[in-house]
Design a protein around this nucleic acid. Sequence first.
DNA 1: TAAGAAATTTAGTTGTGTCTAAATTGTATA
DNA 2: TATACAATTTAGACACAACTAAATTTCTTA
Lengths: 225, 225
Amino acid sequence: MKVPLSQAEQDYLKAIYRLSNRYGRAATSQLANWLEIKPASVTGMLRKLAQADPPLIAYKKHKGATLTPDGERAALEMIRHHRLIELYLHEKLGYAWDEVHEEAERLEHAISEEMEARMAAALGHPCRDPHGDPIPDHNLEMIALSEFPLSELGPGQPAVVRRVRDEEPSLLQYLDLLGIRPSTQVTAVAHNKHDHTLTLQIAGQERPVVIPPRAASELFVDLME
Amino acid sequence: MKVPLSQAEQDYLKAIYRLSNRYGRAATSQLANWLEIKPASVTGMLRKLAQADPPLIAYKKHKGATLTPDGERAALEMIRHHRLIELYLHEKLGYAWDEVHEEAERLEHAISEEMEARMAAALGHPCRDPHGDPIPDHNLEMIALSEFPLSELGPGQPAVVRRVRDEEPSLLQYLDLLGIRPSTQVTAVAHNKHDHTLTLQIAGQERPVVIPPRAASELFVDLME
DNA sequence: TAAGAAATTTAGTTGTGTCTAAATTGTATA
DNA sequence: TATACAATTTAGACACAACTAAATTTCTTA
């Protein structure tokens, strides 16, 4: 019976995609927390998404939700919109990388497939957004990722920052200030076992900087050959 | 208590702006017809908009609605968004002029003031959209218009097309086919009193064309000095 | 100016997506 | 394994913006 999805439904599917990628499934309370609504409200929507025709999620009471192939397609469609828009705003309209998320969050629901295609073409069919997040291609396929958390980088290993898995403006501004963004070259100097901070040498800079654990686990890097 | 307007409210205000500009006020049934909802549904929204704080419309039962200064400001804000987006899609993303309206209709509600400003700057602070409709400036002031309907153009008078006051793709495609768009130079050859068609000579073309009344009253022109 | 037609409003209903409060289920541990 | 705590679901309510059907008001014209 394929009916267009509401913005709320699309937001749920995106959130389930994100949480089930990280944790295998999306729990009611995690969704409530991420979407900033009450757990009781989530239950109703999960039942609705599970009983849709075709079903968009697999849902068992008290067991959380995972996406069906149909649900995943819908989620990836929104993610493609979101990331293309972020890059477009950054490249074509001069937005800073900490300003693009909020705008994209609203626009992703409003653009047509036509506009998606035209933006993708104008950007040369890119595969990363300004934070380094991969952009699903036209068929919603995502490139394979080799990067891993900066917090797991061995001391002395040179690496390239690929991705910041966070949209919070304050964190992004802070990283910008330090001179860390996708493509920045870095080397771990030392891990502090007590407070889990990381001392990091940034290529082209005099002195190492200390990275708080929050940032170190949200930054993803690739080893340099 | 100034709360952000819903998309439905913004659409009502835009419709009231358009209708009261043409007819002095917006009647319930005109609004219902334009917005494609039932008259009964309009009544409730008009009461709500009139009782908002601050009031956005002046509304007397059975007398239709007009915008208050606050309501007009909100309407012009959406109109500025809409027309900037139309021009942006046309100029920067290669949309044809009959494709921009539908996309802008959704995007106008989703863009921020920041994005409005950046698009306006990228376009050089334009004052007309692809159909020739005036774009309110940053302070929501609109340029004075001197154009008048093509249907009132005297025979033999050379004129310039300024504006097509319609968004219907089929009409726009038809005009495009004839070679009529803003800035096209034309001369009226004759008005047919019986079927109200207009015979029109288009500059640079061999033979005159016959314009149906629907098009002649939606096309606006300026006299050439 | 009275009757019929047209426009508008009222009253009551629906579907969405949220909420609170209370009941239930699952999990961890003592 | 009993129990206490946390997570989840159920039940019932609400705001919004639409709807239908019926009542009312206004307009037109004979």
